[in-house]
Design a protein around this nucleic acid. Structure first.
Lengths: 144, 144
DNA sequence: CAGAACTGGTCAGGTATCTTGACCATCCTC
DNA sequence: GAGGATGGTCAAGATACCTGACCAGTTCTG
């Protein structure tokens, strides 16, 4: 079913998972015991803080699931919840100091993997790949 | 963290998830109550049947986890386990009649989504995308 | 400005997924 | 044919995720 011509979805998945694994492994080596689900949420915490509901929508899980993951991340000191000044009901989830350290550690790993890909594909093809994916996001990311 | 320039991993993920959601929704509409994890395994069942260990390796889960998913799929009549003629220990997981029906239903959905992407990107860019992803698989899919 | 309706978030209970560890049966190698 | 590797299962537990119910604030409407 998959061997002859994997569908584009599967083709997208292989490198995605490869990158994810590399980052997760690097974090684990550095003592950040982050699970896959936690990392997926953490990755989506915006610069100035994100609302739980937004995080849930982006990760496409229920707000309860997202809330539980934030609890864990908070316990590990990776994120913190602060009141949202613009809405009394809401609280903003944002990176805590340790979370920023984790992000700082992850960034070069991502860069390195992307460089490996560029080396394998050639710079033009890599740029074209990113361009195509960015355009594809317009019609596949309801959150773009 | 993600807004300015999402890393390539995230860019890969958006269309991947979009395709997956579409297929899953189509299956659900047709009465196939397949969960995400089940679908991910099911997708990897090869034409002539796959060993449980192989499925587990491809999906990057333990054989126990894969075994549990196969149990569920078997209960739904989507796959069946048959003895492997070439190895007395092994059993082959292969699509049952209902599983083939599900695959037959999913295929045109995949084709349709890919066509939408091609329409958005243009045929050349879409072909280039697939080509780049296929090459990328060489260094990101330990199973290729 | 008082409901009414909506939105952000939590609590409770349940299922699905996935893990480690132990175990058996069959193969393979020498 | 003994020893080790491989395919698979059983068992127990942690995590991730869901539905449904609920509360607290906000916004809309008259």
């Amino acid at each position: 079913m998959t061997d002859a011509e994997p569908n584009t979805g599967l083709l997208l998945f292989y490198p995605y998972r490869a990158l994810e694994s590399r980052v997760l492994a690097a974090l684990a080596d550095a003592g950040f015991a982050v699970t896959l689900a936690q990392a997926r949420l953490l990755q989506r915490v915006a610069e100035g803080g994100s609302r739980l509901t937004d995080l849930a929508a982006q990760a496409q899980v229920t707000k309860q699931a997202a809330g539980g993951l934030v609890d864990q991340l908070e316990r590990q000191g990776l994120v913190e919840r602060v009141p949202d000044p613009s809405d009394g009901r809401a609280r903003l989830v944002r990176l805590a100091a340790r979370g920023q350290a984790a992000a700082a550690l992850a960034a070069p790993v991502v860069t390195a993997v992307e460089a490996e890909w560029a080396a394998h594909l050639g710079p033009e093809a890599m740029a074209a790949l990113r361009a195509a994916l960015t355009r594809l996001r317009e019609i596949t990311d309801p959150w773009a």
